[in-house]
Design a protein around this nucleic acid. Structure first.
Length: 568
RNA sequence: UGGGGUGUGGUGUAAUUGGCAACACGACAGUUUCUGGUUCUGUUAUUAGGGGUUCGAUUCCCUUCACCCCAACCA
């Protein structure tokens, strides 16, 4: 654990609740949480918040957090997602001893359902879904009771057994809790506990013909595992009375193995310029807007990872934004600031030129046969970390600079290379612009400079200063690389706010692939997946597979860009 | 239409439960610097509105308003 991880957990209402429970001995001093994803999609930044809250809270109070797959709907779930989710959680930095599955409790759940039937608290309803829905009533109007609501217990037992045995067709019947069709909370109007679904399940195979609903499975799974604090998002707030009702019945029957767990809800994470809805992420892929779940523009953990976001920075962010019940949306800039903070400390510096402009040193020395001499200059790997040491880079009479770093006619406050001005080439020499070559259209093709041999290493012996230090890459030694530049996937802060359709706010320039970039030779020794800083440009991640492809993780804070933006 | 939830700067969270509204991001102005990065400093708020109780209210009471969630055999 690094220094940033040591900061005390921020105050929040859930943590206060846990502290109060510990003081009062509510759960015998135990704290146990769970993260319950449904294995039907990939984890994204929103899940990262839930994971961080669930795992950190348990860890802080000496408890454990279970990873439990909520695999109660065989229609959409798949084993491949299970694997990816376990993998992503591990990458985020959390240890999962053994993944658990709601499907492991199917037998227990059925036993408990039978218990409720015997107590007259559940019944089989043979009406179709549409009828049941109509009878549920609406906001303000009470529901009406099913004609099957008062059928004899033996009949319910028999019908439920037949549902389970596969003797009834899909949709022919459901098991319902017998609560209150007049209840002002819709969730309490005799909710469905089981539906008939003769499907293959990724873990239980073809044995089950009925599957429990979320509400019936979730709280009971919590109880079986000994969960104390069942944390979920705000939209489940209305389900809490039902969560408690089921557990109350089982507690009254004396069958719960642990203290009765409690559910608390907090606001989900929303980010500006980002969508996290599973449906919309899927559509981005199927429409070909992005390349897949791990496209560096995706808010998925796999995407962020490929983009170069350190797992620690995601955790820092999730810890910092807090836990509350206020619907809110965090600025993506905050996430990026945590990424920069982490990367600034650990990323080694390298030089690369994205849009090359050739510079020739007119007074550079040659050997007897007219070949330019080559100097090796020493460069610091990371000014933030002396232990990273130094490296050398070749320097000769021709090099590349960024097109942006030269202006024939400089705008106000521009202090990079311009005719007549002297600048420093990082770690090398001072050079002064003495001329330029242009093509037929007047575009700058090449810049001519002279260098001062007395400035070797980057300092003038007479102590004179220059306004600007620029990065460069020796033209005769450059490594050709490709760089993918990324901007926000959605240009609007709140995608879809204006028209109702998030896809109207897609940024057409979310990716720009630069094929003709020049990098210093040290970049040739790629460590796949690692992140470096290209000096003055930003942080760039080596692709996981292609050694000479770099993804821009995030740019450096750029005051010059702000100055230009302000001028419009 | 009924029920539930939430309102603190541009943004997100705090405030020892009635005592100078704090932290961070962003923005702006400086500082430092061989990265227009980093560092450091400063500026950026009548706590949704209106009443009340009190010496004193983000906190307690009344009231108005705004936003979010709920009528899947999804989770």
């Amino acid at each position: 654990m690094s220094a940033l991880d040591d900061r005390p957990a921020a105050a929040n209402f859930v943590r206060d609740l846990v502290i109060a429970d510990c003081e009062q001995g509510t759960f015998g001093g135990r704290v146990q949480t769970r993260f319950p994803p449904e294995p039907n999609g990939y984890l994204h930044i929103g899940h990262a918040k839930a994971i961080t809250v669930d795992f950190d809270l348990a860890a802080e109070f000496g408890g454990v957090c279970n990873l439990r797959f909520d695999d109660t709907n065989p229609d959409t779930e798949d084993a491949s997602y299970v694997k990816a989710i376990v993998d992503d959680i591990g990458w985020l930095g959390y240890e999962v001893a053994t993944p658990l599955y709601a499907s492991d409790y199917f037998l227990q759940l059925v036993d408990w359902a039978v218990l409720l039937i015997r107590q007259g608290k559940a019944y089989v309803d043979e009406q179709d879904g549409e009828t049941i829905s109509e009878q549920r009533g609406g906001y303000g109007n009470p529901g009406t009771e099913s004609p099957h609501r008062d059928r004899p217990i033996e009949e319910n037992l028999d019908l439920f057994a037949r549902m389970r045995a596969g003797e009834l067709d899909e949709g022919a019947a459901v098991l319902r809790a017998r609560i209150d069709m007049q209840h002002e909370n819709m969730q309490m109007r005799d909710p469905v506990m089981y539906r008939i679904r003769a499907r293959h399940h990724h873990r239980t195979g073809d044995g089950w013909k009925i599957y429990p609903t979320y509400d019936w499975a979730h709280g009971q799974s919590d109880a079986i595992e000994g969960i104390t604090h069942s944390l979920c998002t705000l939209e489940f707030d209305g389900h809490r009375p039902l969560y408690d009702w089921y557990l109350d019945q089982l507690a009254d029957a004396g069958v719960l193995p642990y203290e009765q767990p409690r559910q608390s809800e907090f606001a989900r994470l929303e980010l500006t310029h980002t969508v996290t809805s599973k449906r919309k992420l899927l559509q981005l892929i199927s429409d070909g807007v992005v390349d897949g779940w791990d496209d560096p523009r995706m808010p998925t953990l796999r995407g962020l990872r490929r983009r170069g976001y350190p797992a620690e920075s995601i955790r820092d962010f999730c810890r910092f934004i807090g836990v509350s019940r206020t619907n809110s949306r965090n600025e993506i800039e905050l996430l990026e600031s945590f990424v920069r903070t982490r990367l600034n400390a650990v990323a080694q510096r390298r030089m690369a030129v994205l849009r090359p402009l050739e510079v020739v040193i007119d007074n550079w020395p040659t050997d007897d046969s007219g070949v330019p001499l080559v100097e090796q200059v020493e460069l610091i790997n990371n000014p933030e970390n002396a232990d990273d040491g130094t490296r050398t880079a070749p320097f000769s009479g021709r090099f590349w600079i960024e097109q942006d770093d030269f202006k024939a006619e400089p705008p106000p406050k521009y202090y990079r290379l311009t005719p007549g001005r002297e600048v420093r080439l990082r770690g090398a020499f001072f050079v002064t612009c003495v001329g330029l070559d242009t093509d037929a259209d007047g575009n700058v093709e090449r810049v001519h400079v002279t260098y001062d041999p007395e400035t070797r290493g980057g300092n003038a012996s007479d102590g004179r200063k220059v306004k600007s230090t620029m990065h460069w890459v020796s033209a005769d030694h450059a490594v050709d690389v490709q760089v993918a530049l990324y901007e926000r996937l959605f240009s609007a802060e709140i995608p879809g706010e204006a028209t109702g359709d998030v896809f109207d706010d897609l940024n057409p320039n979310s990716r720009e692939l630069l094929e003709d970039c020049k990098a210093e030779p040290a970049l040739g020794d790629a460590t796949l997946g690692s992140v470096v800083q290209f000096e003055r440009l930003g942080y760039f991640a080596h692709d996981l597979h292609a050694p000479l492809l770099f993804h821009r993780t995030v740019g450096l804070r750029d005051e010059w860009a702000n100055i230009q933006k302000r001028k419009g």
